[in-house]
Amino acid sequence: MTAPVMYEPLVPRVGGHRNRRVVDGVWIGLLGISILIILAILVLILGNIFWHGAGTVSWAFLTEPPRDGLTAGGIFPAIVGTAALVILMSIAAVPLGVATAVYLHEYTPHEGPKLAWERFKVSEGRRGRIKLLLRFLSAALATVARSAVANLAGVPSIVFGLFGLGFFIQFVGGGMDRMFYPDGQVVWNQGSLLWAALTLALLTLPTVIVATEEALRTVPPDQREASLALGATQWETIRRVVLPASLPGIFTGGILGVSRGAGEVAPILFTGAAYYLPYLPQKVSDQFMHLGYHVYILSTQSPDVDATMPLLYGTVFVLLVLTFLLNLAGVLLRSRTRSRLR
């Protein structure tokens, strides 16, 4: 047995250990405080609304229309209007967004236009050159489309509202009325469920596209190879392997986008939301009441502030609950998918 060798420390141990520990503690404390602030704000907002709002919500509140100049009654038309709007918006946004993402991710080159151009420049042979030139153009198109999507996501929602007014109502709606109703009747050239839903769909599109591309990216390449090697075409591979595997991710993204759109007021201000309607919307060319817009109306246009206050809290409460439920559905879907793919 040899005695264990004792090494001298390479760097002489200096003081300051305690000091370093204190600095460590201060930083951890600061980080912790920021979490506390966030939580406090959330609790304050939600607690306030729950405290004041939950009491107002009753079966009658949910199923009756507003009465007495918005100082009494319920919010039934606003709930129906919001639901109809969200459904119409999803029908417009989800298929278009998914199709765009599938094209971008599955049919355009992954190497980016710069590399594609380099490859084209050094290529040989006429057939090969044409193929690589088309590939470069496709890569360039994808890059342009992706940055367009990113920019679309950054546009303020009120601008979407103005666009909806100018494009859908004035241009498309006006054109349709001139074509189908030469006697001067106004059907489409005004705010309606349809135009509001399409405007909101534009707002939701980037979320759906980005989420779908993300979901497609999670499908392992060897799954595609397995399908192609069995003699499937690219479309068959997408339809039978890639889309089923990424469907839950697409659902999640769709729901999160839709829940964001459900609470947006600015885009529907000019495109179809009504101050007060004595009836429910019957067709897509009708105007509608909307929970978010109703909150705005109650808080700014009420003749009797004290009488309106409980209604306002109740409406906000319902809007929040609906949005949370949609988000919860999205999160649950996502976690279920994750566990299933494992």
Binding site: P220, D222, Q223, E225, A226, S227, A229, L230, G231, A232, T233, E236, R240, V241, A245, R340, L341
Partner: peptide, 27 residues
Amino acid sequence: RRVGMVFQKSNPFPKSVYENVAYGLRI
């Protein structure tokens, strides 16, 4: 379809055993 392939890393589809084998026929 005439020249089948088996890969280094087994890559079954996240489907049932039956649907995996039936895949090539279904397409």
